[in-house]
Amino acid sequence: MAIIAKPHEDITEDDVQFLRDNYTSAGGLLPNAYSGGAFFTPTHVARFIVEALRGLSGGFSAGQTWLEPSCGSGVFIEHIPDDAEITALELDETSAKVTTLIYPHANVINADALTHSRRDYYDFVIGNPPYGVSIDIAAEELPDEYVTLTKKRDRYGGKSELAFIELAIKAAKPGGYIALVLPKGIGFSGASAKVRDLAKETCWHVASIELPETTFAHVGTTIKTDIHILRKITPNARKVYVEYSRIGSEKYPLDIVKQTDATTEGSTFWYEGQQPIFHAVITDIGYDKDGKSTDKWGDGLTQLDELLEAFTDGGLVRENCDPVAPFKDEYHGFSVKVPPHEEWRVKAGHVTYWNVLTLGRGEDINGTSSFDFDWQDRIVNEYKGAR
């Protein structure tokens, strides 16, 4: 507080380094998160998200646009290239000032993220929004309607994580990526149904990664969280309808995908370009519940570093893995449910990953294989070329 109270010209490099090393803000998982805090994400989790996006997008280029809608002290900004155009939103005035000092190249805005009005603009939207906090905002302050919020008279209310997902989707440009750390309930809770439907209607689902309960132990919580990576669809992507069935025994099932149409009862849809969804479970984040290091090899690496290889080799498919259909009629990609043939890996403490079927096991979809991992990029490039 003494540092940020100084006149800007009196703040030294040592002051900025002190803030970088020590300021972690109030904590977005705390009850006051939405009204006065931002959550410190472990730096290697933030680094993983940025590097996974680097691999998925084929590398970063100067001038690409980034949005961090709940930047806290800027742990995500730390890993974004300096030559990017970075917009960082932060409601807490102290956190915003600290982030401005540490990252002067970023455009840090001290404001309520939900009032941010830029739409279809950002190449990447990333972050770790506050969870479970009740939003109460005047309707006139919102730039447009929010399906995840409920209007009563002249005010909107709802849960923070749901509204932040909707904000990310609104803000990303068609073909842009969204990567957020979110509570486990996004995948199955009734309260999250609207945002799951919204994501299904507007995005390709790329990956979901379950983090261990120890990930946020340093702020005194064992809340279960996942990293979800989406990509906003472009208008030229068409819906493809499918239904799922199963053959074989319960112990050794085989999931089958069949193309249908919108009128078929029990069918679901994905967009052209939807690849098999990458799912993973991390069992070791690099430290235990007491904060003690679990780095047995002494190389500073964690299972996230091991998993990152999958995002940089261009495939996102694990060899010798039988892809499985979405779990128990949950026709979306948010529920990270370990299939029976992968459970032993989790129990053994290994990093575990598999694929969730969407459009089929390599079936032809409008002349393209459902396992064609370049299809999505071609759709996006076709859209960009036509503009």
Rank of each mutant, 00 (worst) to 15 (best):
P129D: 12
H116C: 14
R119K: 12
P183S: 08
E213I: 15
K173N: 02
P183M: 05
G185A: 11
E210F: 11
A172W: 09
S117R: 11
A199M: 14
I209H: 05
K184W: 11
V181D: 03
E141Y: 02
G185H: 03
T221H: 04
R119E: 12
I209T: 08
D226I: 09
G187R: 04
I223E: 06
Y177V: 14
W204L: 08
L198P: 02
G220E: 13
I165K: 05
A217S: 12
D226Q: 12
L167V: 09
H105T: 13
Y122H: 13
V181N: 09
G132L: 04
I165V: 14
V108G: 06
R153K: 15
R155F: 00
K184A: 15
S117C: 06
A139I: 07
T225M: 10
R119T: 11
T148C: 15
S134F: 00
Y177C: 08
E166P: 04
Y131E: 06
V133T: 06
A193C: 01
F216N: 13
A139N: 11
R155I: 00
Y156Q: 00
K152V: 10
V206W: 01
G127A: 07
D120P: 04
E161L: 09
F188W: 13
E161Q: 15
K173L: 07
Y156K: 00
T221Q: 05
T221L: 06
Y131T: 07
I109H: 05
L180C: 03
K184I: 11
A217H: 05
G158H: 09
V219F: 01
L114Q: 03
I229A: 10
I178C: 07
V147T: 13
S134W: 01
P174T: 14
V133Y: 00
V133W: 01
A207Q: 04
H116L: 10
D154N: 13
V147E: 13
V206I: 15
P212L: 07
L198R: 05
A113F: 03
V195Y: 12
V108W: 04
H228Y: 06
D123G: 10
L114P: 01
A163Q: 10
P183Y: 00
S134C: 01
H105P: 01
T215D: 06
L211F: 02
R119A: 14
E166T: 04
R118M: 10
A172Q: 10
I135M: 15
F164G: 08
C203K: 13
G187N: 03
K184Y: 11
I178R: 02
A191P: 00
